[in-house]
Amino acid sequence: MGRLEGKVAVILGVGALRNMGQAIAQRYVREGAKVVLGVRDEAGVKPFADSLGAAVVHCDITSEADLKRLMNTAVERFGRLDIAVNASGATHFAPFLEEQIEDLRRITDIQFIGTFQFIQAALRVMADGGSVIQISSVTAIALLPNHATYMATKAAGDLVVSAVAAEFGARGIRVNSIAPGPTADTPMAAPLMANPTAREQRRSATPLQRLGTADDIAEAALWLATDENFITGQVLQVNGGRAIHRLQ
């Protein structure tokens, strides 16, 4: 029997081929979970969803109505919601004095307000003993040049996770973040990883001497989703030790 047999999971952020959200969805299905995918491009994700036997719901993390429909679909179709994973995000960088208010608002809407709304929507329907998982970033504590907005919103999301974990622990609901570092195989990291020099710099600066992968994050998300752990309100640094140096 799989480690998630009988559990129902919602995953947001699976729109790009081979991204972390897709790796998590694949891992969950292999372990027996029923999965509902929240996506902005239903047609584009349909082949992936069909390969897993997963349900698909249109969902934009900035829309409260979309998030409510996503969570309710899981309950209506499968009778419950046990796991909610937010793997959505928006890459963005700019020198501090060149940052534009439009970009501040866009990234904040996705990575702070969106995170807040996602967790709210999940908790309104989640079964006691469930697990909420937020994909954060090592940059919430490890400085990366020209990423002030990205880093600040990821850090804010981690603080929301801590606050919610304290409030909902009495229901047995675990709320945690996973903080990846540079990854070798995800679409968001692809432009950086295409540069051999940049790729090698990041590998050599990682104490475990290799770059992370989407599967590394999926394994951590599997463990946090099971009932086999006793952890809540934490940021799990799944980045080969990059967080130790606090500098990218």
Rank of each mutant, 00 (worst) to 15 (best):
Q234H: 05
D109P: 02
N195Q: 12
A90G: 07
G21N: 01
Q234R: 08
P95T: 00
M126A: 14
G38A: 02
G241Y: 08
T197Q: 11
A205N: 06
M20Y: 02
L12V: 15
G157W: 08
V164K: 06
I107M: 02
E42K: 04
A127F: 07
I107Y: 01
M20E: 13
G233L: 10
H58Q: 07
L144N: 02
L211W: 02
E219R: 08
T226C: 10
P207V: 00
G53K: 01
C59T: 15
I178V: 00
S162A: 14
I217L: 06
M151D: 08
A194M: 01
G21Q: 03
V8M: 12
I173H: 11
A65M: 08
D216H: 11
G38Y: 01
L81P: 12
A243S: 14
F78S: 00
G89H: 13
N176R: 04
A87N: 10
A94R: 13
L123H: 09
Q134C: 02
Q117C: 10
Q237N: 13
L192F: 12
V45L: 10
V238T: 15
D82F: 14
S204L: 10
V175N: 06
A9C: 03
A54H: 14
A156T: 13
V85Y: 02
M1T: 04
A140K: 01
L208H: 08
E76C: 00
T62M: 10
R202I: 04
R40T: 08
P196S: 11
Q209S: 09
A87G: 12
Q201D: 10
F96N: 14
A214E: 09
V235I: 15
Q134I: 02
V235M: 00
P182A: 15
N239W: 04
S88I: 00
A189L: 00
A155P: 10
A84D: 08
F96P: 09
Q26W: 04
F116I: 11
L70Q: 02
L97W: 12
N176F: 06
L123T: 15
I110Y: 12
D103P: 02
G157I: 01
A9K: 12
L4I: 05
R199P: 07
G32P: 08
G44W: 06
L211A: 00
I135A: 05
A214R: 01
I244E: 07
